[in-house]
Structure formats: C-alpha cells, structure tokens
Amino acid sequence: MDSNVMTDIFWTVILINLPSVVHCHESGEQVSRQTLIEDLLNPSHYDSSVPPGKPTNVKIQLIINDTIMENEQASEISGLTTVILHWIDSRLDYSAKASYPSFIIRGSAKLKPWVPDIFILENREPYITGFGSKNELIVFNRSGNVVFNHRFTTRMLCEMNLDYYPYDEQHCQITLQSYEFTQEDVQLSWLSDNPVMDHVQSTKTVSLKKSETVASYVIDSGGNFSTLTTILIIKRNYPANNTIIGTPIVLVVISTFSLLFDDNFTPRITLCGAAMTTIIMHWAGIYNKVQPVATLLWLDNWMFGNLIAVGCIILYTAIRHHVCKAAEKNSEESKEKTISGGTSQPDPGQVNDKYNLIMMSVPVVLC
C-alpha cells in the first residue's frame, strides 16, 4: 500500500478517536464530589471497623471553650470542650482521581469513615451540642489526612482538695484513651502546636506532651492502651472569695461598734449574739455546698477566729456589766450610810491587801 495512503489512514484514526480521549480525560478530572466520596467509602473495599495503619498515629488537640463551673459537693467540673483528632487514612487518598483540595463529609456519610473511639476517662456525662445534629466535622484532603472536630459539653470527675478553700487551686486530671483499639492499633500523641488550649481566664493547663502506655481501664480488655494525660488547674474567682471572707469581717466590725451603746447592756448582747449566729449560719451554709467528708481547714480557722472576736466582745460586755452594777450598788450603800450618819471608812487590813486594792480599781477602769 502506498505510504501516502497509510499516512492518511493514521491521521484519520487519530482525529476520529481524539474527542473520546479528551472526553475521558475531562470526565476523570470533573468527577463530582458526591461520586468520589461514595467511591472512596464504598463498603466493598473500605472497612470502617479497621484502622488504616498498624498502628495508626492519632494526634490530639484539646480545647476548653468556656468557663469551668465547679461542683464541690459532687467533685465535678463542667464546661464546653472541643476535641480535634488528626490522622492519616491512605484509603482516602484521591490524589490520582481528582484535584479537589479537600472534602467535608456531611450527613449520614459521617458514619462511613473510620474514626478513633477516643473517650475521656473522667467524663461522667457528656452533652452533645448542636441544633438537630451533633457538632461534628470530618475533613480530609487529597493525601488522606483526616481531621475530626467534635464539640460537646461535659461533666468530669475532679478529686478536689478544699483545705485552703476559698483560696484553693484545684488540679483536675483529664485522661484520653481509645476504648476499643489497643496500642498495637492506635498510638495517641499530642498535637505539636498548642496541644491543650483554654479560653478561660481563671484556668490554666499543664499538658504532659508524651504518650503513655498503661493497663486498660476496661475490664478484661486483653491489652494495653495508649493514653494521654493533661492537668487542668482551676483557680477560684476573687469576687466569690470576697463574699465568703468579707461577711464575718463586717459582722465583727458591727459587734465592735456595739461598745458605743454606753451602759445599754441588752442591745450590746443582742447585737453580738445576732452577729455570732449569722457567722455560724454562714459557716454551715458553705459546708452544705461541699462534700460531707470535706475539711475546710483554712475556712474553719477563719470562721473560728471571727467567732472568738465576737465572743470576746460579749465577755467584755458581761464582765463590765457585772462589775459596774456591783460598784453602783456599793456606791448607793455608801451614800445611804453617809446620810444616816454612819461612816464608810475602809478597813485598814483591806486597804493593805493588794488583791483588794486591785479589785477596788477595776470599777474605776471599766466604769
């Protein structure tokens, strides 16, 4: 066959098949996001119950979002918390299929990818936040890097030491661990940048930036689990301290001013008695807010000191009233003897007695 004929046939075949080649290339680039996600998470080749690696390294970031509320009676702290997990799932690598920078998995598709079953050991009761759905976000990019963001309200156990209440500083431990996957399947580590963050002025965190392997907290788990621990340090707000400490001070000052009532014995005792009763009730009310077995050593000393101060005022008032009344009675008797013509000369033996001299001078000082 002539070479020119062969050349014409070659170019004819190329021109006929060129549109289909271009179409195939474009269809591969323009595959829809929904189709790509369904293909990546197809149960026929993606098992969501199996971690992507042996082991899978999961990096964790813990964020304390809002004010921590303390419950001393139940030994609990509560607040809004966000946990962000980072790991690599090579099964979600779509760099050879499409050029989308990243994907956000929404709706029921959130249940399809593998997600580490991380839990907080001290957690007593989590509250899922969100309007109609959980505050969860799953994002992955072309290389299979996955980010899982979960926001929730939690109540956590915190063993509290209230010896220096209300100037105490509580150290609450937070332990994160996988519930199902042992250290052979999942290794936990803190995120290198800002592993533990808090947005609360009255708290600060001390994170242990290392992964620890400990015996499982799950009975008969059959293995050891990788865990992370951080310490949340909580300081009490000063306005609350002023209320607790300032009330007894005001009552002691008021009791001291009762000394200005001159010889009015009844108002003095009534006012001081009311102040002492109020301090005791204030003291008991504080104890009702904490555990029955708690000991508030600093507060006990403070309240007891204020009670002693008020008690001293009552004791002084009682002694003064007794001495002055006796001196007034003796004075009246002396006046009666003088009027009746008697004498009120003291016995020389009594005058020489130092003890009697002191007792005779007491009314002069107090009255």
Rank of each mutant, 00 (worst) to 15 (best):
G53R: 15
R106I: 04
Y46P: 07
A274M: 05
N57G: 07
L357I: 11
V290T: 06
I14Q: 14
V21P: 12
I16F: 12
E125W: 07
Y316V: 14
N17D: 15
T338P: 04
L208F: 12
L40E: 08
V58C: 04
K325T: 14
I308M: 07
K210W: 05
E26L: 09
D263N: 05
S44Q: 00
M156W: 03
N65E: 13
T12N: 15
T56G: 05
C312I: 13
G144Y: 01
T35V: 07
S102K: 13
T343S: 00
S102W: 08
L297T: 10
G341F: 04
A294C: 05
P239G: 00
P19F: 02
F10H: 10
V218I: 15
E180A: 06
Q34I: 09
T82P: 07
Q345W: 04
I120Y: 06
T243F: 07
M160P: 00
T56C: 03
A240H: 10
L62V: 01
W298Y: 08
P346Q: 00
S202L: 14
G349V: 11
S255E: 01
D347R: 08
Y287H: 10
N123E: 10
L299I: 08
D198T: 08
K210L: 11
C312H: 07
D47C: 02
V323F: 06
R236T: 03
E38K: 13
K235D: 08
T203V: 03
S192Q: 12
P166A: 00
I245D: 03
W298E: 01
S78F: 09
C312F: 15
Q201K: 10
E184L: 11
E332I: 04
E336C: 02
K335L: 11
F304E: 13
I105N: 01
T230K: 10
L228Y: 06
P195V: 02
M69F: 15
H282Y: 05
Y217L: 12
S340G: 10
H321M: 03
Q61L: 10
A98G: 01
A327K: 04
E136D: 05
A96L: 14
Q183H: 03
T277N: 05
F225R: 03
F152H: 05
L208I: 15
K112H: 11
E72R: 12
K325L: 15
H86T: 13
F181C: 06
G311T: 09
F261A: 07
V58N: 02
F131I: 14
C272A: 00
S340M: 12
N17T: 11
L18S: 11
K204D: 13
G222Q: 15
F10V: 10
S340F: 05
I138G: 02
V218F: 11
I286N: 01
T7N: 12
K204F: 08
G222E: 09
E159A: 06
V250T: 02
I138S: 00
L208Y: 05
V218N: 05
L307H: 06
V115E: 03
Q30N: 13
H150N: 04
P267A: 01
E125Q: 10
G285K: 08
F261I: 02
T247M: 04
